[in-house]
């Protein structure tokens, strides 16, 4: 019987940083941990979880590739039940946010999504959850059922791998009923991390002038290893797709560094990015509200700054 179950996600066969954060947290808190992975690389990911304290890890590879909610929910329930854990942790990825509420309902439990902090308090799990898209936070406490928490990445420290391997237990995947079928996955244009996972974000607003000027931000993002975001105004204007919107009706982000270019800082936008560790605001208008939330501010023109900034960044990062 373990105390914590961690759902593992990987990229190119390696555990994602977010999964390592969760395993590290459980180990640091001295909690007996098991883990589980689903997909083509499940066995490999399960084995890796051992290097971060998981003794047992379940792995299942369904016959159909990709995400099938029905198959995943059924497997997750089986893995969690087998682990005996009361605390269930996963990253707030698109997949986990889709599957876990359904797992929760099936297991007579609630679920706290998009949390930014975790602690044990007298044997009870407390999660920190931003509400109103980050305008405030509250502590989540579970009264009954499983404690299912979906954590944003980049919130918790990670430990070094210790070379151990988990005892991998393979679970057969159920047959899909055909009520829901993944027909195909259309890849996005960018292979950069998603805004919700990005460690550095550079965002543009109306001050960018027109759609094609986002190339300037893409160029800087290339140098910085950043993902490009946008304000609602430019999404509504059709300059960039909705997937790039940061804010209350877009994505809530929590990078280490957020650079806002030509964004005035409407309350809805600031709600979505105020969880960033360091905020840089670049705006021509010295009175723009964004400066009140920023760590560093430059009153200036992004078009004049972009060149020198790229040069300085290239120098510093090489």
């Amino acid at each position: 019987m373990s105390q914590v179950f961690v759902f593992l996600e990987g990229k190119d066969g390696t555990l994602k940083k977010g999964s390592v954060e969760l395993l590290t947290w459980a180990k640091t808190n001295g909690l007996e941990t098991s883990a589980g992975a689903i997909g083509a690389d499940a066995a490999g990911l399960a084995k890796q979880a051992g290097a971060f304290g998981a003794k047992v890890a379940f792995a299942s590879t369904p016959s159909a590739e990709g995400y099938n909610p029905e198959v995943y929910v059924s497997l997750l329930k089986e893995m969690i039940s087998a682990s005996g854990a009361q605390i269930v942790l996963a990253n707030a990825s698109a997949l986990a946010k889709d599957a876990f509420p359904r797992v929760a309902a099936r297991m007579d439990s609630s679920v706290a999504s998009d949390c930014t902090g975790l602690k044990m308090d007298g044997g009870k799990l407390i999660a920190l959850k931003p509400l109103y898209s980050g305008k405030c936070t509250a502590e989540v406490e579970f009264e009954s059922g499983l404690n299912i928490v979906l954590m944003r990445s980049n919130q918790l420290p990670v430990m070094d791998a210790d070379g151990s391997e988990a005892d991998v237990k393979t679970i057969d995947a159920p047959q899909a009923s055909g009520n829901v079928t993944l027909e195909k996955t259309v890849q996005g244009a960018s292979n950069k991390p998603d805004l919700t996972e990005a460690n550095v974000i550079i965002s543009g607003g109306r001050g960018m002038g027109e759609a094609k000027n986002f190339e300037i931000l893409e160029d800087l993002a290339g140098t910085l290893g950043a993902t490009v975001g946008a304000s609602r105004a430019v999404v509504d204007a059709g300059w960039v797709p909705h997937g790039m919107q940061v804010g209350q009706t877009g994505k809530t982000v929590s990078p280490s560094l957020y650079i806002a270019c030509g964004i005035s800082g409407a309350i809805q936008h600031m709600a979505g990015m105020s969880g960033s560790k360091v905020i840089v605001a670049i705006n021509k208008d010295a009175d723009a509200p964004i400066f009140q939330k920023a760590s560093y501010g430059i009153v200036g023109d992004i078009f004049e700054l972009a060149g020198p900034l790229k040069e300085e960044l290239s120098k510093a990062l090489n």
Partner: peptide, 17 residues
């Protein structure tokens, strides 16, 4: 048949009864 938005601008196309 629906398109579902996932990370990085990718889309999953699902057929549901």
């Amino acid at each position: 048949v629906v398109e579902r938005d996932v990370e990085g601008g990718a889309k999953e196309v699902f057929q549901l009864k």
